[in-house]
Design a protein around this nucleic acid. Structure first.
Lengths: 248, 248
DNA sequence: CTTGACCTTGACGCTGCGTCAACCTCTACC
DNA sequence: GGTAGAGGTTGACGCAGCGTCAAGGTCAAG
């Protein structure tokens, strides 16, 4: 008993294209091939196809199915492995659903995207390469050790100080206070201390501190945090005044 | 303030390849291109990139992101649509996890895959094309109406009769009873009646009945049901005897 | 001999880049 | 001014699993 490719497709509920694909992969070679090139399949092939389709419905990939059919892998083992992958997938999707949901809620609350969302204080790892490039790998490692050593409470305090400074600078700018005003320079002094703490206690050079100011203007994550690009420039200018006066 | 492609990549935590890809897609064209072909980006581009990456982390596709950035789609609307897709995905993964888990349990219970798993009685719709091809669209439609008209109880009874006949035939074969034995032919008579019921009460011709026997041998889903290929051939042979004697 | 229905072998398309390959360019050091 | 090294460019293949033309043989029926 032999069938053509279409008949097999109908019997198994798939398509002839799929069968040819499986032939190309060596997953299901036809039982025989006519002189005209036609593919013919027998019961054994049909049975094999049923197994393939069953495993495929469970979500296994074709290479994995091939291994099972070749007897290189146990059915159960393959399914267990696949199950773990599926669970990973579920977790990933769950996390994305949570993220998207909270993002939608924030949007409904009138918040703009991207403000604190992205930076959340001071994401330490994102800037690894940038820090290493500018100030060396050792500087980053030192900073990283320090940051981890702070613990959750210390990190929260560190962020709180940053938020306080930011708020002060925003107010100063909003009220039109010039950057060389003593009030602003006082805030910048706190900022410099804050940065120094972040650098493991060693005092940043004027050059490094000015570079940081440029980075605030350059990186929208910082810029947004300081009230938009103009705000970042305001902060940078204040830092320049400070550096010229105190770090010269 | 301008940056090279590598600098932007580091600042944003992505790769230069990705940036070139976004350029190709028109998603993030560089601010300017040097005479040497180098791409340069400014703050505006960096901000745009941040939005892209944020939406990408939420799982949106690049075309969807492009729409949002072009202002054609509202952020919230895009995220809502995406959320529904994510929920679908979660359900799909959940279903697969359930399937794979039960399959593993069955394997541990010593069951072979594919036996009742695939057929589960008599899946009426799977054979639609096959039935239509062999006996016409009207025959299928008639049979289908009848089957649905049975209701769950009627269908269960119909399956029970099939199971009883199958069990009887399996026993007969196991005990070496020849296919022309009156006991076997009695079972086949019940089978013929069963098939006739399935055909809406009209009596199948000898030809159609013999074709059905061949189908049992041909299709592993039936063959497995009747105790393997040999079992299916036993049944087919018994049907041939019956057809010759009663339907000639 | 002409329809159709069915068969064949390519080959592109889709998603989002990773990953060579082959070949300029710019900077820094000798 | 040569050379090394880091960084830039444009192709183009690869991955998963087929869907979907395209162009052209084959076969049974009228």
């Amino acid at each position: 008993m032999q069938w053509s490719i279409q008949q097999i497709a109908r019997l198994s509920g798939t398509t002839s294209r799929t069968l040819r694909h499986y032939d190309d992969l060596g997953l299901l070679p036809p039982t025989s091939i006519g002189a005209n090139g036609y593919r013919y399949y027998d019961e054994a092939a049909l049975t094999r196809l049923q197994r393939i389709l069953l495993l495929r419905e469970l979500g296994l990939g074709l290479p994995a199915i091939a291994e099972v059919l070749a007897g290189q892998t146990d059915d159960a083992a393959a399914l267990e492995a696949h199950l773990r992958w599926l669970e990973q997938e579920r977790d990933r999707v769950d996390r994305q659903i949570a993220s998207v949901t909270t993002t939608i809620l924030k949007l409904e609350g009138g918040e703009q995207l991207m403000a604190e969302e992205m930076l959340d204080g001071f994401d330490h790892t994102v800037y690894k390469d940038e820090v290493e490039q500018r100030w060396g790998a050792e500087a980053y490692a030192t900073s990283d050790r320090w940051w981890r050593g702070l613990g959750a409470d210390g990190q929260a305090a560190f962020r709180a100080e940053a938020a306080a400074i930011e708020a002060g600078l925003r107010d100063a700018r909003a009220s039109g206070t010039p950057v060389d005003d003593p009030a602003v320079q006082g805030l910048i002094a706190r900022h410099y201390a804050w940065v120094r703490a972040g650098w493991g206690g060693s005092a940043p050079s004027a050059e490094a501190y000015l570079g940081l100011g440029d980075m605030y203007v350059a990186d929208p994550r910082f810029a947004q945090n300081y009230g938009g690009l103009d705000g970042a420039e305001y902060v940078r200018d204040a830092m320049r005044v400070y550096a010229a006066a105190e770090l010269g």
